[in-house]
Every structure is written in C-alpha cells, then in structure tokens.
Amino acid sequence: MLRVLYFIVSYIFWLLMTLSLEWDRLAAGAVVCLLTTMIFGKTSIQKHKLLQPQRYCWAAYYVFLLLWECLKANLDVAYRVLHPAMPIHPGIVKVRTSLKSDLARTSLANSITMTPGTLSVDVTDDGYLYIHWINVKTQDVEEASQKIVVVFEKILKRIFE
C-alpha cells in the first residue's frame, strides 16, 4: 500500500521534471518510478502517522526555521571567512540525541549541517552524534547538546515520533 503512495509521489516528481505529456516520456517515467519504488520501497514508516495533520504543520514550520538557520549560517561563514584574523576554534565534539527513528536522525544530522558553524561527521547506534564545530564553546556532551541539538530535536520529535 505504501509503495503505491511512493509511486504516485515519484511520478508527480517525474512529471514536474519533464513537464510534458508526450506518451513516450510518460511511459519512460512509469518504468523509472516503478523500478525506484521496487528498489527503495522498504522504509519503515508507520501508516497512521501519515494521516495526522499536525505533523505536516510542524514540518512546514520546520522548513522555515531551517531556512532561517541556513541564512544565519551563511552570514556566519561569510563573517569568519572575510575577517582578516579568521576567528575559528575548530574541533569535533560529541552530542547526544533522544530521537529513535532513522528518518528523524537523518533529518537531525542534515539540519545540524545547515546550522551556523556545525557539520555532522558520524552517528552511532546508541544515539550519539559527532559534530565538527568551527567555534568550539564547550566540550561537555550535555552542554553541547543543549546548544546544538535541542532546538531541532523538539520539533523533529513532533514530526516523526
């Protein structure tokens, strides 16, 4: 059942990419989408979560938050790069997350990469992330988690869990 949904979504995506209704393109799209759905269709989303509208509202809010953080991150990089003395104190810190599902952790890692001065390096199975921080303020796991992770974690929990 979920695979049908995936097929429809990917087919809409194909239609947007090609933006034509000639039969050969439609057929090629159907073949490609079918293959994609067959290969990558094994994700573990619980169906009842797809039908809860508040999750989509939080997701919409999350997109705007992420765009804002991304803009701040760019200005931050611009400041550090253009400053003659280059004020950087780089290092890799360890933070903890309470998110459980793979999708949520992936989103968290991607979001952390888009926020000012941080870049996720690795994720462990027991919920720790290694973050490259361009301006290390604390090496403590809890404090660093407060500074980097918590902002996104609260919302991602509402979206995915």
């Binding site: 104190h89 780089p90 290092g91 890799i92 810190v93 390096v121 290694y130 290390v136 090496q139």
Partner: peptide, 10 residues
C-alpha cells in the same frame, strides 16, 4: 584536523 583544533572526541 588542523593543528590548532581544540578537541577531537571522534
């Protein structure tokens, strides 16, 4: 990492 890096927990 760069020599002046603060820490490398990884």
């Amino acid at each position: 990492l760069w020599q002046k890096s603060v820490c490398d927990r990884y």
